[in-house]
Design a protein around this nucleic acid. Structure first.
Lengths: 273, 273
DNA sequence: CGTTCTATTGACTCGATTCAAACTAAGTGG
DNA sequence: CCACTTAGTTTGAATCGAGTCAATAGAACG
């Protein structure tokens, strides 16, 4: 167990949702973690596991699968800065399976750390609650998508959400980001067949909204994609809406430069907890 | 504001998920509440409302709709004992709309009460966390259903879930319960059209699994319904599984008589908080 | 007693699945 | 380095589940 810079990704994520004091950021800087690499489709958390730490995703993507079936429905996906199993700090049993979608880097952070920072700072405890509520908001919103949209909107919405969530932690600044998902993964997220996932992507490509090649997604018409998806990011509970419907891709860093300093806590030297 | 017996429904619900001490039950007995009746499809919570109390459902059903569209997707439904907006104790803003599905009786309970019992009893705080986690479990499970099942299984699964959740709070003992939902409501839950909802119900009737007439559902072949739905109630996190695949309807109260005393706290006289 | 909401039915259309096959890319080992 | 394997993508054709539209029948309510 060592102290590293894992906390900066988490700090970016937290500050995108809740306002933190300098003291809170100092608390975060003391986050102990042990890093592990996972290869694509490797299992990170097993059903009925009772971990004493949480997974903080540093690079790549992960997803929950609630069913045991290997190509079963994916219930949520995660981007760097997310802590998919934060809820295990409340009830330490894992009821589903957590997989890496593409290669992923994960920092394991002891439950005790989250308990401690919650106890020390009221505001931090509140921020962690908001984080959990944001996850539930994502879940509810995705349920609405699955229940009421056809495949084209589903896929479009998914890509909008990933984009905004990445940008909230300082990634995908140029509307371009790695996407190691297979089309079967995409299908498992969107609740459609792999074949149809393929045809849907082609449709999006043909409409000139995005490119998806060699494990990279490049959004070529963000406003149109948002419009097609009917994407409204309120449910993400971000302090900055992050939409910029008007800003075109020609101006790479629109107006969030000041609100979005990538890692405001880097000034604090890390020290063991 | 008065103290009533609203707490018994809530206590039933809590004890179905978490173990409570006698002291905890005494705490619950002091629950202050003000009762209100709602008629079918009346709105209980409005978007962007900032309530200082929670809705404890005493009779009937309610549902969340995340979209403003009046026939939009329903993201969750609630049975007596549920507190749909418990999360507002953490973050007091309501992001969706809460409706009564059929006539409903609701007890409004101040946030302060939940904060107080959490502060006084560690075990109670934990129980409330488990309650919230169970809600999320429901949500995830329903997302899987919407993403991977066709309409027949969706409807079958919904009815299984309602049945088990009702039975967990001492209702629907004979696999028979009021169901004031319209077929449009059912459609909005299951993400299908109202016309198709109708045809699906007829299918279930034709298979001899249930009756649905004059706002009552009678399950006529519970084991077959469970099998058809592929219903596995683990995700509800109930302490008692409540499946009884084998027990037929001829024996109305199978084996849960001892574990399920309907309101174990009624012995405690209610006193103002 | 009529108005309104809800349930039901039929015909047509469309989105999506399935199955099968071909094709590409990426490894792996001889 | 090439042949072989494997995983992932792409395409077509047949089928099926579900949506839509429209019309009717029934139930509830004032």
């Amino acid at each position: 167990m060592q102290t590293g810079f894992a906390f900066t990704k988490f700090a970016d994520h937290l500050t995108s949702i809740a306002e933190l004091s300098d003291d809170d950021l100092d608390l975060l800087a003391r986050m102990p973690s042990s890093i592990r690499n996972f290869s694509s489709h490797e299992e990170i958390r097993y059903r009925d596991e009772q971990p004493t730490d949480c997974c903080l995703l540093l690079q790549g993507y992960t997803c929950w699968k609630d069913t045991d079936h290997s190509d079963g429905q994916i219930t949520s996906i995660h981007v760097p800065g997310d802590v998919p199993d934060l809820y295990t700090t409340l009830s330490p049993r894992v009821e589903a399976r957590l997989f890496a979608l593409g290669p992923a880097v994960v920092a394991f952070v002891p439950h005790a750390f989250f308990h401690e920072i919650s106890a020390r700072s009221e505001r931090m405890a509140h921020a962690l609650s908001l984080l959990a509520l944001a996850d539930v908001g994502c879940l509810r919103n995705w349920l609405v998508i699955l229940g009421s949209c056809e495949s084209l909107r589903r896929v479009a919405h998914l890509i909008c959400e990933i984009t905004v969530r990445l940008r909230a932690v300082g990634l995908a600044r140029d509307y371009r980001f790695p996407s190691p998902l297979t089309q079967s993964d995409l299908a498992a997220i969107c609740g459609i067949s792999a074949v149809h996932a393929n045809r849907t992507i082609q449709d999006l490509r043909r409409r000139g909204l995005l490119q998806w090649q060699s494990r990279m997604i490049t959004i070529t018409d963000w406003p149109a994609l948002v419009r097609l998806a009917g994407f409204k990011p309120d449910y993400l509970r971000l302090r900055q809406p992050m939409l910029q419907e008007d800003s075109h891709l020609l101006e790479p860093r629109p107006l969030e430069a000041l609100e979005m300093s990538p890692s405001p806590v880097l000034r604090a030297p890390a020290a063991p907890l």
